[in-house]
Design a protein around this nucleic acid. Structure first.
Length: 205
DNA sequence: CCATGATCATTA
DNA sequence: TAATGATCATGG
């Protein structure tokens, strides 16, 4: 397997800016709507192929970046995030034992490669790649501190009230939302709120 | 309207 | 069956 450094991944991805991701689906053998229902992940899966990687879905060793895509709506002359962004699933045991700066949540955030994709409506096959960026959190020291506060708040709530008490209402920048296979499965994941997504988009480098 | 909570397709 | 990529859809 090929290991691509983060900087190169950004360069490789940037070449696709302006392209419609639907045109890349066939080349990279990503399933989208073939089964009459949308594979909600298809945009993300296409993007993961583009830097020249064979496999990024499990964040293999040696990989120093995290590729994320978010849909953006156009309005009032600017783009705003349509949705929050999933960061990583929460393992309750790890959360209790891990400090923020050692957490999987932070390691993913700090190494993010952020892909903004144009939103064209529900179940649309069109998805133009707007912008590929990285984000330097160290240029925004206060933001890190505030995200850490959210992390610690969620961590304390887990300790005091239990895993099930975690809700998407918690946190200023990141939240602990439900996530899973549905039908009663109990899972929580860190999500970046829209405000954080927008901040990454606007202040990206 | 929007955010939260629920759910989906795919892969390993 | 759980993890990962996310979007859907209902309630407030």
């Amino acid at each position: 397997m090929k290991i691509i450094a983060r900087a190169n991944a950004i360069i490789n991805l940037s070449k696709y800016a302006g392209q419609n991701l639907k045109d890349l689906v066939l080349k990279h053998k990503v399933t989208t709507f073939e089964t009459s229902k949308q594979n909600k992940s298809w945009k993300g899966l296409v993007l993961e192929k583009l830097p020249g990687l064979d496999n990024t879905s499990k964040a293999p060793n040696g990989l120093d970046f995290e590729l994320k895509s978010v849909s953006f709506c156009e309005g009032k002359g600017e783009f705003t995030p349509k949705e929050t962004m999933a960061i990583t699933v929460i393992n309750p045991k790890d959360l209790l034992e891990t400090e923020f700066y050692d957490s999987r949540c932070w390691s993913k955030l700090k190494s993010i490669i952020f892909c903004a994709v144009k939103w064209n409506g529900k179940n649309s096959k069109d998805a133009q790649l707007l912008k590929v960026t990285s984000f330097d959190f160290t240029n925004d020291g206060n933001l890190i501190a505030e995200i850490k506060e959210d992390y610690d708040f969620i961590k304390n709530k887990l300790k005091n009230s239990g895993f099930v008490s975690l809700t998407g209402k918690d946190g200023k920048w990141i939240q602990a939302r439900t996530k899973g296979s549905g039908h009663g499965s109990i899972t929580r994941a860190f999500y970046a709120r829209k405000s954080l997504v927008k901040r990454i988009f606007d202040n990206s480098i």
